[in-house]
Nucleic acid binder design. Structure first.
Lengths: 198, 198, 198, 198
DNA sequence: AATGAATGAGCCTTCATTCAT
DNA sequence: GATGAATGAAGGCTCATTCAT
């Protein structure tokens, strides 16, 4: 069994996520993760080296899972509009299905900013941005180029969902994000200028 | 001098914000705030009681400042579209002018969730949501009602700006948020369905 | 009004006693005494100099009160046995009437052991031991001298009452000390050898 | 090695007692105990959880030791009078042999009054009262019942010794408690009515 | 005499990390 | 690979005391 896929490793990451979601990363102690995972303190350090790395690995694991989902959705899309809807749907469905993972990814990008390990994470981080960007660029109307940075358009798609989801996950919104799935998908299409007012 | 406007209090809050912005709330120690503010440890506790309350007061102070700015912008708007642009512009200009305050407000809503003090903060929090909502509701086309919760529309306006700003403030975006001011304003108008594709 | 009898001083001492009785001397803060007495922090220090002195003055004030009571009881006694009963009765009645003062005197003799102030307290402490000793010595059978130190006999008289009272005041005895008033008086007479078994 | 008998634990308790005896419980800092015991701060907390628990465990350990001694003395007694002498002798000898432990037991019964742990200590506390009471009740003259609570008689036995010992241990008595061993034993017999005046 | 905001030394406790078994 | 007792640096907070008004 490869290092990354060890059962024990996954159990620890899942337990850590639960603690992080419940108490926050800083307030989570190694002892909490130990108790939740059933591992020993020494085992945690054997596998991950220190707490910061656990937090980073949880982040990367979540990212992999989200990207797998997003990839599936995008694979079924043909047109630009379908692609945009796929992005929004992937966000909504992922957040609703895995609120802990989603909430963690929202708020803890910073755990990857570790002294001397940035390069180790960069590859992992950028690996999946390329294909998605390529997917969309390949479907732009012939000869058209983006007037603004691609990231600005990405913000139009995912920003509203994320903003609403943050509040919803924190219990500050009554209406489920799931109910607003199409609302946000259509708004995204309009925002990027693909469709006009109803 | 009223309690809220004491010079010393403001110096402490400003110093605390600086520390929070630089190191994060958890990693900021009382000693850091003490050194940055010039106050004594005892004085910090005399004024705020504990670190958590300092964090909460910084949040509320930031909220007051942002709302003051947003109020000015909205006061000059007449039409619905102008209102939406005012909201987006207020966000962009506030974030660009006060990146520390803005970054803090983005990521630390949670500091208000304090055992037994929620009611003390609720009033302050809700105080300014009313007027803004009222402004927009009063300008809806006659007889029209919102199909979705008001907060969902709010997410369309501020979500993209926030999403982009988070990355930009963290140094992960090259293009300044300021450059994208009109891009996000127009996208917001389109997203809510006020304007069609160019 | 003399320094010792100032109204404010007495209010502070009484308030301090209440705090000491409820929380213990160490756990009582100047702030508690301030709140309970209605005085200001500065006033406490103006009158007493520091916390240790407050504790000492409370002790001395209690001692004065107890001795006044004991003196009254002893003044009415004629024989040796009546004197012994007077001592025991004074203890029981004082403890029952002023449990806070009594409990404080039991457990906080140490507050008088202050660097450089022992001589200041010695006079006060010894002032009243003389008369009582003299009272008893004057009534010993002609030519008889005590075989053991006077303090050993004192322990026979007050020891049982104090021992029981400590537990009773702490809520660990059901039967009231008052009910045992004569029991302890008679036992004291027997213990010193004045009376035989019933 | 069982938890209670760990070498490290005992070293900590003994060191703590020394500090408590010298400076008082409140004035003793964790750092003092750490230095005196040779353990690390973390180890103190690993074994006892907090300072309050250390104080309580010292108390219980002292109680166990005293009861062991008292048990030995009582085991050799046959008659009621011998039993009473055994109780007094055990007190005197224990106080003289272990003045620190004895002084601590006198003055710090309160350390067991800890939020939520009273029941944990109750069993330990009551464990040894039963056998002693039973010993005496079994030797009462046939058909005789105590007119007063057993604790009142206990006060007659130990009260004088404790009263004198408090002062003696504090350096306020010249005559050694040991010299008064028989004086207090005989006085105890007289006090409970077993023997008359000489 | 009174006031109370300010001071800062010092304490209890936590917790990431190590390492002998 | 696993274990968990031990470590000790560091942080939040308290509180007796001072002093300008």
């Amino acid at each position: 069994m490869s290092e990354r896929s060890s059962t024990r490793r996954h159990a620890i990451l899942q337990a850590a996520l639960g603690c992080f979601a419940q108490h926050g990363v800083e307030a989570t102690t190694i002892e909490m993760i130990r108790a939740a995972s059933g591992a020993s303190t020494g085992s945690l350090y054997h596998h991950f080296g220190n707490k910061e790395r656990i937090a980073a690995e949880v982040y990367l694991e979540g990212l992999r899972r989200f990207r797998a989902l997003q990839g599936e959705y995008l694979a079924e899309a043909q047109t630009l509009e379908e692609g945009i809807r796929a992005i929004v749907h992937a966000q909504v469905d992922w957040i609703a299905a895995e609120p802990d993972w989603a909430g963690y990814l929202f708020n803890h990008r910073g755990v990857l900013a570790q002294e001397g390990r940035e390069s180790a994470y960069r590859e992992e981080l950028q690996g999946a941005q390329g294909p998605v960007s390529a997917w969309f660029l390949a479907r732009l109307p012939a000869g058209q180029r983006l007037r603004w940075p691609a990231e600005a358009y990405v913000a139009l798609l995912v920003g509203p969902v994320h903003d609403y989801a943050r509040h919803w996950l924190a219990g500050r919104r009554e209406t489920s994000l799931v109910v607003l799935r199409e609302f946000f998908a259509e708004a995204a299409c309009r925002a990027v200028g693909l469709t006009g007012p109803d």
